[in-house]
């Protein structure tokens, strides 16, 4: 089939303004978006710049905005975007843009500096005060189940950059950092719950979440992030009362 990719382009060395460029290519409905991007880079235009690594949705490198939605370019087939007829020439282009709300470095590559700062702000590591036992700390399967979904997060930033609260206030911690906070607050081994709750219970913290659910829609790992954030709110209220 024939499809057109309309790709956001910006080279800081030569362009004063970003622009969109169309590439008409031959593709297969079963191609991933990352495959067609690779095809363009390999065969047509080597200047096209994007991040990618594992190509199967676990490294979190290739988050981008595809037809208006944040997703991983390696985890979506053209047919899932509605380009499914192998014999057709599609007029409607596939629009590919960088993740919104982040500074743009080049083409589809964005600057993650603030994203990582927020990640680090929630102390993303286990804190224990009691001395470790000789063997493993015990956890029931139910204890682990509580944090399993949260530990799936690949830090691709699809959620945080899809959140309207982040768009209006870039200082908002955002869903990814809050999910990381959840992962440790609800880890039965962690002994710094209060300290962690203090971090998210701030004006730019959890209360900027208005359960808009964009993060849930955007998450390529299908994590119900809003549910996790709600559990954190519950925990905060319980602490206060």
């Amino acid at each position: 089939m024939k499809v057109t990719l309309r790709i956001f382009r910006f080279n800081p060395e030569t362009d004063s303004e970003p622009y969109y460029k169309d590439y008409e290519i031959e593709a297969d409905p079963k191609d991933r978006v990352i495959d067609v991007l690779h095809y363009i880079k390999n065969e047509i235009d080597g200047t096209l710049t994007f991040r990618r690594s594992c190509l199967h949705g676990i490294c979190g490198s290739d988050g981008m905005r595809i037809n208006g939605k944040n997703m991983l370019a390696c985890s979506i087939l053209l047919q899932d975007l509605g380009y499914s007829d192998a014999n057709k020439t599609y007029k409607k282009p596939i629009v590919i843009e960088p993740l919104p709300g982040m500074p743009i470095i080049k083409d589809l590559v964005t600057d993650f500096t603030d994203f990582w700062k927020k990640y680090e702000a929630v102390k993303p590591y286990l804190i224990t005060k009691s001395p470790p036992p000789e063997r493993e700390r015990l956890q029931s399967p139910e204890d682990v189940e509580l944090i399993m979904e949260a530990s799936k997060c690949i830090l691709c930033a699809c959620c945080t950059t899809s959140c309207p609260s982040t768009w209006s206030n870039e200082d908002y911690l955002g869903p990814a950092a809050l999910l990381k906070a959840y992962r440790f607050i609800f880890d039965s081994r962690d002994e710094a719950t209060d300290e962690r709750l203090d971090i998210i219970d701030t004006p730019n913290g959890i209360w900027r979440c208005h359960t808009i659910f964009h993060c849930v829609q955007a998450c390529p790992k299908e994590i119900n992030i809003t549910w996790h954030i709600s559990k954190l709110k519950q925990k905060l209220v319980e602490r206060e009362i």
Binding site: L173, D201, T202, P203, N204, G205, W207, V237, R239, E240
Partner: peptide, 10 residues
């Protein structure tokens, strides 16, 4: 603001 507690929970 991170870390300077001002509860919004109530």
């Amino acid at each position: 603001h991170y870390g300077s507690r001002k509860s919004g929970s109530v």
